[in-house]
């Protein structure tokens, strides 16, 4: 496969929740995410954003359509090279920060010296070095989310999927976590897909933003931001930032009204 080929490809992906009500949650979705791209998805609440992430991660099968990661079909399980960070705190409360971060590597049976080296790097990278011996219960929500990011990062994923990872955090922490995420993205060269409900977050972080309709979620707009690769949260004062956020909102406004029953 060539460098320019799409890293993740979705074709006609649909998800209908089985059962008597048969909720049509998603799709059909057609999407190509380029290698090394930072792609964000925004949409009204309940539009199937998280469903899209689950299906792409292989955590849930699509009802119809196909998904490919690095040219291989995704079916039934999370492919090697894909890392997922969830909206809820998914750190393991019985393990210290260090053991949480080392968790995935130890399951692979990696040798101890290499585990230590990689864990030290990830813990330092996420600014957790002073808390390596602490348990998650002793940390703030933002730091616990960093533990989860470090636990994913340490496995050196080539595609990182994040499901509203900063949704539970306050505005200032979210902006700073956004910077961390950009730094991580630049240094690892990974492809990133970020699900968010915050338009400013999507406008600030992404190369491209997909705007989803209300349920069943489909892409109704794709916005290229044109930011340089070495951007950070200071671009919120750039004139283009306002224009991008405004465009996202104008695409989304009608759909959001539908989602709250005013459509």
């Amino acid at each position: 496969m060539t460098e320019t080929a799409a890293h993740a490809v979705l074709r006609g992906v649909t998800r209908v929740y089985p059962g008597t009500s048969q909720v049509h949650a998603l799709g059909p979705i057609d999407l190509d995410i380029a290698k090394g791209e930072f792609f964000s998805v925004v949409g009204p609440s309940g539009c199937g954003k998280s469903t899209l992430l689950d299906v792409l991660a292989g955590l849930n099968p699509p009802t119809a359509g196909t998904i490919a990661f690095e040219g291989e079909p995704v079916a039934g399980s999370v492919p090697d090279g894909v890392g997922v960070v969830f909206q809820e705190d998914a750190s393991f409360p019985w393990l210290t920060v260090r053991d949480n971060v080392a968790f995935g590597l130890r399951r692979l049976g990696m040798d101890a010296a290499e585990v230590t080296r990689r864990v030290d790097y990830a813990v330092g990278f996420m600014g957790l070095a002073d808390f390596a011996g602490a348990y998650p219960a002793q940390l703030s929500g933002g730091m616990r989310q960093r533990v989860c990011i470090a636990r994913t990062l340490v496995l050196q994923p080539r595609l990182i999927l994040l499901d509203e990872p900063f949704g539970a955090l306050d505005q200032q922490t979210r902006l700073l976590m956004g910077d961390e995420l950009l730094r991580l993205w630049r240094e690892t060269g990974a492809t990133v897909l970020l699900i968010t409900h915050a338009l400013d977050e999507a406008a600030m972080l992404s190369d491209r933003v997909g705007v989803m309709s209300s349920r069943p979620g489909r892409f109704i707009d794709l916005v290229e931001t044109g930011w340089p690769r070495d951007r950070d949260s200071r671009i919120v004062s750039d004139a283009a930032f306002g224009a991008i956020t405004a465009r996202l909102w104008s695409s989304l406004r009608t759909e959001s009204m539908k989602a709250i029953g005013r459509g």
Binding site: S77, V78, V84, A90, F92
Partner: peptide
Amino acid sequence: IRPVLLRAARSLRL
């Protein structure tokens, strides 16, 4: 048990 812990286990390919 919080379901996200089991989802995390799956995403870590256990």
